[in-house]
Computed example of a mutant assay.
Amino acid sequence: MLTVVICVFLALVVCAVVSVFSPGYRRWMLKAVAVLVGGLLAVYLVARGITEFFIIDYSDPASYAQDWGGPHLLGVFAVHSGPGLIVLATAGYLVWRRARRRAAVRPSRDRRTVGE
C-alpha cells in the first residue's frame, strides 16, 4: 500500500513540474491527474464494498454494530458497499453511452451502388 501511495505522489509531482514548465500541457496534465486520482478512488471504493461481504461475521451482530451504518446489517452494507455500487453503475452507464454514441456515428457499410 505504501508503494502505491509513493507512486501516486511521484506521478503527481511529475505532472505538477511538467505543467509548470510547459503551459501547453497544463490542461492535459490536469485531466491526467483527475483520471489518476479518480480511478484510484473508484478502485478503492469497489474493493472496499466487495471485501465488506467477506469480513463481516453474519452470526454475530456485535461484530458490525459499531461500524459505520450500524447497528443494522443493511446500514453497514449501505455505507460500505453503496459507494462501490454507485461507481460500478456510473461506469456501466458511461460505457453504455459511449457504445451507443459510437454506433450512431459509425457510417453504415451496407451501402449499395445504384448499378447493383
Rank of each mutant, 00 (worst) to 15 (best):
P107K: 07
A91R: 00
I6W: 07
L30G: 15
A32V: 11
A11Y: 12
I55Y: 04
R98C: 03
L30C: 13
G69D: 09
L41T: 13
P107A: 09
W96C: 03
A104K: 07
A65P: 01
V76A: 05
F21S: 13
V76T: 04
P61M: 02
V17L: 15
L41F: 10
F9W: 12
G24T: 08
A103V: 00
A16M: 09
P71A: 06
S22Y: 15
L45C: 01
F77T: 04
S19G: 05
S108M: 03
G75Y: 05
L45D: 02
R101E: 07
S22M: 13
V114S: 10
G49K: 04
A62P: 00
F53E: 01
D67V: 04
L2G: 00
R101M: 06
Y58I: 08
V13I: 15
A99P: 00
R100H: 07
G49W: 03
S22N: 15
I86A: 12
R98Q: 10
G69P: 04
E52R: 14
G39V: 00
Y93N: 03
V14D: 13
V79Q: 07
T90G: 12
L12R: 05
F77E: 02
R111Y: 05
R97A: 13
L2M: 07
L85M: 15
V4N: 07
Y93E: 05
V18C: 08
I6Q: 09
A89E: 05
M1K: 06
G75K: 09
L40V: 10
E116S: 12
F21D: 06
L73E: 03
Y25E: 13
S59W: 07
R111V: 12
C15I: 12
S59L: 08
Y64L: 02
S108L: 06
A32C: 13
G69M: 07
H80W: 14
H80I: 03
V13W: 11
L94H: 03
C15L: 14
L41I: 10
I56Q: 06
Y93R: 08
G39Y: 02
V5Y: 07
A89T: 14
Y64I: 02
A42G: 02
R112F: 11
S59H: 08
S19I: 00
A34L: 12
V17S: 12
P107E: 08
I6C: 05
R97E: 05
G39L: 02
V18N: 10
R112M: 08
V5P: 00
Y44F: 10
A62K: 12
P71D: 03
G92P: 01
V18W: 06
R101Q: 11
L94C: 08
L40M: 13
I55K: 11
V20W: 15
